[in-house]
């Protein structure tokens, strides 16, 4: 940006005035703020002794889960939008033709590297069928890197574990009968 860029807004520092120039008010201002906080109530939650209780699990961004549809199948349609949206490139999907007559495409494998993930929730935003969601589980740990790469079964298991406490954000639409458009088929 050049100094003559018309987009620059030149801001003048407000004059301090005689009181300000003594620096005393500023000096005391900084000092009182620190002292106030020094004695104020602490916000820390001592973790293993006390657990964080999420006020609204629906907006927390923790471990992912893959939702199931009403027949218990994985809801994901393998559209790759989550892995496209993912800024950390942690979602890996292998798509295949679905084995079910009413579905075209499904994820043959769906893995999330929970260590690479930055828990931004973009995948959840991108999903057109609300298949991937972030739960409020935050104390995720494992003994190896491999263990932290969650595959489809594990992600579905997270759903089974959390579905009662955290309902799906959008309940699935009721299945609609296929439209008859006539014509040869």
């Amino acid at each position: 940006m050049k100094p003559n860029d018309p987009d620059i807004r030149w801001v003048k520092e407000p004059p301090m005035g005689p009181t300000g120039k003594t620096y005393l008010s500023l000096f005391l201002g900084g000092f009182t703020t620190t002292l106030k906080h020094l004695v104020s109530k602490k916000k820390t939650i001592p973790f293993p002794d006390r657990h964080y209780e999420c006020p609204d699990p629906l907006i927390y961004r923790g471990v992912h889960r893959l939702n199931r549809d009403d027949q218990g199948r994985v809801k994901c349609v393998a559209c790759f939008l989550c892995s496209t949206a993912c800024p950390a490139y942690c979602i890996d999907i292998v798509a295949a033709e679905s084995p079910w007559p009413d579905r075209e495409k499904y994820p043959e494998s769906f893995t999330i590297d929970e260590l690479r993930c930055i828990y931004c929730g973009m995948c959840e935003e991108a999903c057109p069928v609300d298949a991937i969601e972030l739960t409020s589980l935050f104390d995720l740990s494992g003994k190896s890197r491999e263990e932290m790469i969650f595959d489809k079964e594990k992600l579905l298991a997270v759903y089974d574990m959390t579905k009662d406490a955290e309902p799906r954000r959008t309940a699935g639409r009721p299945p609609t009968p296929p439209r008859d458009t006539g014509g040869p088929s």
Partner: peptide, 13 residues
């Protein structure tokens, strides 16, 4: 400790 308290934390305990 001072740093933690000033930042509304509890510090090493």
């Amino acid at each position: 400790w001072m740093a933690a308290w000033i930042q509304d934390r509890v510090g090493p305990n």
